[in-house]
């Protein structure tokens, strides 16, 4: 008995952990379970199980097009954000540049500005410069949002880079461009791959900015939103489950990559 009381803090910590896990996973599990329900409305009990909803989703042209569109936007904004973010990170660690703290603060700003505010201001901005809503505007919005994450990840890696590496490359005959592409960039690679995957997820996930900047073509979150407004159906559950599985897998892989980079 004495032991149980001595372990009380630990026991309660463990209990809280499991409670949190339940809280985290229960809604997701319910949502996934409903996607296998052989009936037209989302509610308990699940009498018959089926995979029909998945078959329907996979044949849903709208869904597939929205997926493709989201992936395209994610790819473009990720590429832009990674290039910009890496460049800004290089600028921040470079010698002899003034106001590096200000550059850093500005670069990180989009990560902390509330999504709604940033979406509205971007909307106002594009209409000021007469840019139409649509693909380009969405890519612009997503890029701005993703840059801070690339900057922070690239910066962390750059700061752990031995200063002599670039010197050694220069010493062996590389000019600064060659030194960047052959030494700095490969050194940054694990952080950048992790950062890029993060950018992709951010972009695919983004609703608010896309909503304000988008045209008539729906991205995946917009499509699901529109469908939900038309009433819940297990078909939506199946879509969401697919998205969840894919993004979780990609996210875990990104985490694995950054971890491996840290231990090297």
């Amino acid at each position: 008995m004495r032991n149980m009381f001595a372990d009380a803090p630990r026991t309660s910590l463990t209990a809280i952990y499991w409670a949190f896990l339940l809280y985290l996973l229960l809604p997701l599990t319910l949502m996934m379970a409903m996607s296998f329900k052989d009936a037209n409305f989302v509610a308990f009990p699940i009498g018959e199980w089926t995979l029909d909803w998945y078959a329907k989703v996979m044949q849903d042209k709208q869904f597939l097009e929205a997926c493709l569109y989201s992936v395209m936007i994610a790819a473009c904004s990720t590429l832009a954000a990674t290039t910009l973010g890496t460049w800004i990170a290089m600028l921040i660690v470079a010698e002899g540049i003034k106001g590096q703290i200000i550059i850093f603060a500005l670069a990180c700003l989009p990560a902390v500005v509330p999504g709604m505010i940033s979406a509205i201001s971007l909307r106002i901005f594009i209409s000021t410069i007469d840019m139409p809503t649509g693909t380009a505007a969405i890519i612009l919005g997503h890029t701005v949002h993703a840059v801070p994450f690339v900057v922070v990840m690239a910066l962390t890696r750059l700061r752990s880079m031995p200063g002599n590496l670039v010197d050694a490359a220069r010493d062996l005959g590389a000019d600064s461009v060659v030194a960047f592409f052959r030494v700095t960039l490969p050194y940054l690679k694990p952080a950048l791959v992790g950062g890029m995957i993060f950018c992709v997820l951010l972009s695919i996930d983004d609703f608010v900015r896309t909503f304000f900047l988008g045209g008539y073509r729906p991205t995946l979150p917009m499509l699901i939103f529109a469908k939900v407004q038309g009433g819940m159906s297990p078909e939506i559950n199946a879509m969401a489950t697919l998205v969840l599985v894919v993004t979780a897998a990609v996210g875990l892989y990104a985490e694995y990559l950054t971890r491996r980079a840290r231990t090297r």
């Binding site: 031995p162 002599n164 010197d167 050694a168 490359a169 062996l172 000019d175």
Partner: peptide, 16 residues
């Protein structure tokens, strides 16, 4: 440095 014909062995080696 990249245009001179001298090479350095760095203190912490600086291997890529």
């Amino acid at each position: 440095p990249n245009k001179r014909n001298v090479n350095i062995v760095f203190q912490d080696y600086a291997l890529f």
